[in-house]
Write a protein that binds this DNA or RNA. Sequence first.
RNA 1: GGCCCGUUCGUCUAGUGGUCAGGACGCCGCCCUCUCAAGGCAGUAACACGGGUUCGACUCCCGUACGGGCUACCA
Length: 469
Amino acid sequence: MSNLSVKVRFAPSPTGELHIGGVRTALFNWLFAKNQGGKFYLRIEDTDAERSKEKYIDQILESLEWLGLHWDQPLFYQSQRLDDYKSRSKDLLNTGRVYRCFCTKDDLQSARDAGHYIYPGTCRNLTDDAIKVRLNQGQNFTFRFRVLEGETIYKDLIYGQIHVDHKELDDFIVVRSDGSPTYNYVNVIDDHDMGITHVIRGEDHVSNTPKQILIYKALGYDEPTFAHLPMILGHDKKRLSKRHGAPGVQNFRDEGYLPESLINYLALLGWNPGTEEEILSPNELIEKFDLAQVQKKGAVWDEKKLHWVSGQHVMNKSTGFLLDAIREIHPDWGKGSDISFLISILELLKVRAKSLTEFIRQSEYFFYAPKEYDRAGLKKWWKNESVNERITAFLEHMDKVPNWRKEDLETSFKSFAESIEMGLGKIIMPVRMAVCGSPNGPSIFDILELLGRDTTIGRIETALEKLPN
RNA sequence: GGCCCGUUCGUCUAGUGGUCAGGACGCCGCCCUCUCAAGGCAGUAACACGGGUUCGACUCCCGUACGGGCUACCA
């Protein structure tokens, strides 16, 4: 099944940090390459000198690395290839596939304002003499691609056959008046030179594809196979973009999502494995990935489902792994505590925390006495002075716990509850409030065992002083 | 404006002429239970609309509506 000749690329422009839409494109390229046993390249499209920033390059690479979307070498930089475009432009000029256009931006804009969306062909058939005159006058010019009559048809792996009448394509610019190549042109040359076999990119490029195919043909290159991915949408069904609420990858890392959670969720956004499985590891995704199963319509980004996916992955992780992962985003977590203590905490919180940051938040009372007590919890479990009486009595009872282990603690709680003929919860919950400050969390016996006798007693005494007020 | 693409529960999706239209997230209820989770069970909820084609359409065709994309000397 493996096809060693498959080569794909992800080509971000470093004008901002990598966001979720970009990751999705990268991911599908990567999954396809890995599934096919091919290569996954990265090409930094940094020819927009104005907006491209070194720091974004670093950020993009870092994000991809964090996600585990490792790329094959070499790493391509478009800016380093500028010379390669020039000679080919000359060839195209010589063969007449491209011609000089002396129209100015203003001319074109006013034509467009007047409702003429398509380039009128003003310079299409200039005579050699006319060209010479303008050249001598020092007029600036662009290179326009001469679109001939006909139709371009291509087969998109996701959308199927798409055909466009050349009447819809005007003679588009291929080289700007400053000599720099435009996107559609550069892309073709880069992809060809890199030996790209499958161009997998966002649906926003569907309309560009016929133009690019024309360039491939003019240059005498074989065209690659195209596959266009549907967009990721916001809740308003509008395409997610940097300016329209697309979160950067860094956010997810900071929020404590595991890379494989993000990858899992993103893979399911617009694709499905053909089974009803939802939780898949990167390797499983690679194994099952198939462009034929990719959706045509855009998918709305749903953070709630990501959160659920994340919780599922967290549950499957070993506590050792989780400890390392937490310390990566929060090096001080549990500092000064025994590793075994930390591991025990993680064990207890594993089914409860859905992200790394939730471990940090939910574990606070294992390290510090509560600074304040949850209001709703108090209202329900520490209503009045009668609770103080009950808990004070229980405190004495606790002195008799032989070994401070959860089994003995449980026995002790139960016998006390029986002795005063009250439900277990009437003891447990106030104690929980006193010790943790919150009504939620793992079994109280587990918590108390970990915290130890002195800490437990101390916190209960403090609570008795402060509460119920 | 023109062209291209799309349209199944609120969301992600399965479905390829005959299904009680399935699953997942969310929400709701119950069970479990010291709480919160996790887990189990049940529930809520969808084929955009109108015409065809057909014995029979979510599935095929044509329109309409709605949404998205492109239409730059951006990428």
